[in-house]
Design a protein around this nucleic acid. Structure first.
Lengths: 254, 254
DNA sequence: GTTACACCTTTACGTTACGTAAAGGTCAAT
DNA sequence: ATTGACCTTTACGTAACGTAAAGGTGTAAC
């Protein structure tokens, strides 16, 4: 199939100006010109435009895109996989933003308070990365290097089956917790089941289990933004709910 | 709490230039200037900046944002709710893009074919709106106005409980279907459960139920892009899988 | 055969939301 | 009194197009 500027533009949802501009900067040249000087695009150009738009969607500037798509050693499939990862990351950020809007709504209606810092959560990618770096350090400070290293080693030494089991368990915790949250009662049967699943999940990372450590982690889920954000992502208040369920489960609270 | 440009900038993740620019165009003026001419921001400005960033995140241009936040009749809560809706819509678009990347990957690896049109799905908001308009029309053409109107009327006349039940049912269909898909067998017990749930869900919208109509809808889920995109969003192939499950459930296929 | 209309071309200036640099004043600590 | 990290204004630069002007092309209709 061959396309003129307008046809390709309509197909891809971009303006003719954009296509001419892409020609001008050498990022997407037409396959050929017809006898009247019209730009004619073919299959290869359609595919290339799709690539370009993938990157544009991610906010990559056209200079960099040009480098990418004109590089002969460019591995399209590898790039796509990376692209996919980035889209998933963006969805996570979007979820954080939505959680923030929910929080802000609650705050506007006087149902809760919000720190200035919280008001800007979800806006910045960087902050997520910073927290990522910070988070490792904080845990090391709180629990000591050996424990963290032991935990890391344990993950590394897991068999494929064990790894799958722990992943499955994590998902089950999330699901059960979401269901339990609806009951509103951290002492409810389903909430206690979530706490038990959480214990089993934790035991995979920590060699030994004590009620005190379990309760401590539960409290950390509330105090540490990094963890709270994770649990509160879909439903604000979940972190606190899980903490309460675990406190009851470990007998630290009636 | 009071903030200078840099402090507020760090808090919100924007540059000092941005804050000065926002002052310049009158979109966010500091609460006051100190004796040396420094910009000092207070609580009201923090909240306003948050509002501004919400809109910026949505791609609203600053002129329009200015209109919005300086309008005295501006209802912040209503705007936030709308903002939330738009974020959800964007997440849906993101999911479409991810689905597209998955498809493109499969195509790149030679596992399937892709039309030129499909290559650009998920890129354009407009297209979604167009489809939204088109979709209503198409269904009217295929099934006649009365049925659509009756369906609309039925939704409007639902009690709160009924509405909640139908929403819950829809979620259950999705979950069960996702689980069934893993088995790979549309005749499996869980797949048949999904088909049954789908029937119950459908019955809420259509007054009467016939196997033929049910099977017809199932086929439409595959043929109509609009529906297929919905079901294939998270897992490509789900629409076909559901169709097959329903065909077996209704006895139209062994 | 020419008129209409929807295409196509190049050239060129305009726009948005800042980035970046220059030139200089302020404040707290050493 | 000197750093060094802040702050100020002024002003030009930029990315990725939008938009307008001035004109050529293709074909269907009168």
């Amino acid at each position: 199939m061959e396309y003129t500027v307008q046809k390709l533009g309509r197909l891809a949802g971009v303006s003719t100006r954009t296509l001419r501009y892409y020609d001008e900067i050498g990022i997407l040249k037409p396959a050929r010109m017809n006898s009247s000087g019209y730009r004619i695009y073919g299959q290869a150009e359609v595919n290339r435009l799709q690539q370009i738009l993938f990157y544009r969607e991610l906010g990559v500037n056209l200079d960099r895109i040009k480098e990418l798509v004109t590089d002969p050693s460019f591995d399209g499939i590898e790039a796509l996989k990376e692209h996919r990862e980035q889209l998933l990351a963006r969805r996570k950020q979007l979820d954080a933003l939505i959680a923030n809007v929910d929080k802000t709504l609650a705050w506007s209606e006087g149902r809760m308070t919000m720190t200035d810092k919280e008001k800007f959560e979800g806006f910045k990618q960087k902050l997520i990365d910073d927290n990522e770096a910070k988070y490792g350090k904080e845990v090391r400070e709180k629990y000591g290097d050996e424990k963290v290293d032991k935990s890391n080693a344990k993950v590394k030494n897991m068999t494929k089956e064990q790894y799958e089991e722990v992943t499955r368990l994590a998902a089950e915790v999330t699901d059960t917790l979401a269901e339990a949250f609806k009951t509103g009662d951290p002492g409810s049967e389903v909430a206690q089941k979530a706490a038990e699943l959480h214990k089993r999940w934790l035991t995979y990372y920590w060699g030994e289990y004590t009620k005190e450590a379990h309760a401590g982690v539960a409290q950390m889920y509330v105090d540490d933004e990094r963890f709270r954000a994770y649990y509160d992502e879909k439903q604000p208040g979940t972190a606190e709910f899980l903490r309460d369920a675990i406190l009851i489960y470990t007998g630290m609270k009636a």
